[in-house]
Simulated assay, not measured.
Amino acid sequence: MNCISLPGITAISYVPCDSLPADLIYQALTGFPVTISSSATEIALKSIPSCEVEESPDNNTQIEKAKLSFTTLDTLPTSMPLAFLITTSAGNHYILGTREKLYPTIKVTKNTSKPDAEASVHRYEVSFTARKALIPYNP
């Protein structure tokens, strides 16, 4: 089992899963360049985000489990399936999610604070498991 952590996430945005091209996982596995043409909504980050990918064998196939964590003042439209676009400080771009089911699961924790402290924030934990959970793309 391997665990990979992305260095220095500088931006996260989201798009509805149905606006993504079909078969992203197969494109990534075959080395076909993935591009995104739909416009994404940027998330205003309030802390340092993290993304970890765990690789493990399952029935003679490698499976990746990705977990993205971040806090924001924004409220995301979690009533629809969302995919997340990640940009790193090294200039790499990744997609977490696909057009097809199973979609990423989104866990939201809302924190309140004291009246004289910082504003309340939403902590999001996005999990996605697939043959290729973190898909490189060209913006």
Rank of each mutant, 00 (worst) to 15 (best):
Y103C: 00
S5W: 00
K65A: 11
T35M: 03
I12L: 06
P57S: 01
E54Y: 09
P139G: 11
I36L: 15
S113Q: 15
A133M: 07
S47N: 15
A130Y: 11
E125M: 08
D18M: 07
L73N: 06
I86R: 10
A83K: 01
L73Y: 11
N60Y: 14
P57D: 09
S19D: 02
S47F: 04
N59L: 08
N2F: 14
Y103Q: 05
N111Y: 15
T72R: 03
I95Q: 08
F32P: 01
S69N: 09
N60G: 06
S19K: 05
L73I: 13
V126A: 02
K114D: 12
S37M: 12
D58F: 12
A28T: 06
P77T: 12
S13A: 14
S56M: 13
V15R: 07
P104D: 12
S19Y: 01
L73K: 08
V53M: 03
T41F: 10
V15Q: 05
K132E: 09
L73R: 10
A119P: 00
L45E: 02
E52F: 00
S37G: 09
S79D: 11
T105D: 15
S113P: 05
T78V: 11
A44C: 04
L6W: 07
R123T: 14
T105G: 13
L29N: 00
K46E: 12
M80G: 05
L85M: 13
L20S: 01
T75N: 10
A130M: 09
A90C: 01
F128N: 06
S39F: 10
N138L: 10
T109L: 11
P33C: 06
P81C: 05
T75H: 07
I48Y: 01
L24Q: 02
G91A: 10
L73P: 00
R123F: 04
T98R: 15
E64S: 12
I9M: 03
C3H: 08
I43R: 06
L6Q: 14
K101H: 07
Q62Y: 03
N111E: 14
Y103K: 03
M1E: 10
E125C: 15
P57K: 03
D23T: 10
P49R: 05
A119H: 07
N92E: 14
P33N: 08
N2R: 14
L45R: 07
E64P: 02
G31F: 13
P57A: 03
L134T: 05
I9W: 00
T61R: 13
I86Y: 05
S47C: 03
L29T: 03
P136Q: 06
Y94C: 05
L76Q: 08
G91N: 07
T88H: 07
T10Q: 06
D116Y: 09
L134P: 01
P104Y: 14
